[in-house]
């Protein structure tokens, strides 16, 4: 069965949409109540916003590519790396 990824239940986050700061897409997140704040900038933020919709790695990659006008094949390895890191630190769940 293909794994699906989503933001973990204990994560609060805010992106520039809610902050109106700067030109670089940025998301700030934390596992609440004890986690430290984490910042995702640029393409990292784009992948995070794609993860907010949830989906398989292919779906997340496609959503990130659509948001950033990129070729899914060219970014898939980087997206997979970032998603892996986010799973390791517990802010993304793999179901």
């Amino acid at each position: 069965m293909t794994a699906r990824y989503r933001i973990a239940d204990d994560v609060a986050w805010v992106s520039e949409d809610g902050l109106d700061v700067g030109d670089v897409p940025t998301a700030y997140l934390a596992r609440v109540p004890r986690g430290m704040p984490i910042m995702l900038e640029g393409s990292g933020c784009v992948v995070w916003l794609a993860l907010a919709e949830g989906g398989t790695l292919e779906e997340v990659t496609a959503a990130a590519a659509a948001m950033s006008d990129a070729d899914p094949d060219q970014i898939s390895a980087d997206v997979a790396d970032l998603v892996d890191q986010l799973v390791v630190i517990g802010v993304v769940r793999e179901d």
Partner: peptide, 18 residues
């Protein structure tokens, strides 16, 4: 493409929301 960083210097608005 990943820029994950300690965000202790997050803007005040982000800190307040979180």
């Amino acid at each position: 493409m990943t820029q994950e960083a300690d965000a202790r210097t997050a803007p005040v608005a982000a800190r307040v929301h979180l």
